[in-house]
Computed example of a mutant assay.
Amino acid sequence: MWIGFADFDFLLGDVSSLKEKRSVVRPIVADIRKRFAVSVAEVGHLDKHRRAEIGVSVVAADRAHVDEVLSGIERAAAGRPEVELLSVRQRIIEADDI
C-alpha cells in the first residue's frame, strides 16, 4: 500500500474577509474531492484572508497511481485562475515504512 500526501499553498485574489475566502476555497476543495476521489481539507492559514493551505491525501496499491493522482491535482490547482499556487510539498511513502 502506498500513501501520498500534498500540501498546496495558495495566494487568493481580491479577498478582503474570511467569508469571501470561504467562497473561494470551498469550491476548490469540493472540485478536488469530486474529480480525484481523495481526502482534502483546508489545513492552514485559517486566519489569513488572502492565503489558503489545502492538504490532500491518497492511498493506492501502487506508487505510480499515487504519483499520477497527486500530479493531476497539482496541474488542476495551478490552472485555477482565481488563485495563485505559491508552493506544493509532496511526499509518497510505502505503508511498510511506517
Rank of each mutant, 00 (worst) to 15 (best):
H49M: 10
L70Y: 04
L18W: 08
D14A: 14
R91S: 14
K34T: 08
D9G: 03
A37C: 11
H65L: 12
V69T: 12
D47T: 13
V29H: 04
I92T: 11
V40I: 13
A41G: 09
A64Y: 02
R26H: 13
E53S: 12
A61Y: 00
A30F: 01
I32Q: 02
R33W: 06
V58H: 03
V69D: 01
S16R: 13
V15L: 07
R91P: 00
E74A: 15
S57A: 15
S16V: 03
A78I: 05
P27M: 05
A6E: 02
V38R: 04
S17N: 10
A30C: 01
E84Y: 02
D31I: 02
L18C: 08
G13D: 14
H65S: 10
S57E: 05
E84Q: 13
A78H: 11
R51D: 04
K21I: 14
A95W: 12
V40S: 09
L18R: 06
D31Q: 10
E84R: 14
K19E: 12
I32H: 02
I73A: 05
R26A: 15
V40C: 10
H65D: 03
H45P: 03
R91T: 14
A61G: 11
L86S: 04
V43Y: 06
I32R: 00
S39W: 09
A52T: 12
M1T: 05
D14L: 10
R89E: 14
I32T: 09
L46F: 13
V59K: 00
V40Y: 00
D96L: 07
E82W: 03
V88L: 03
S16I: 02
I98Q: 00
G44H: 08
E20I: 12
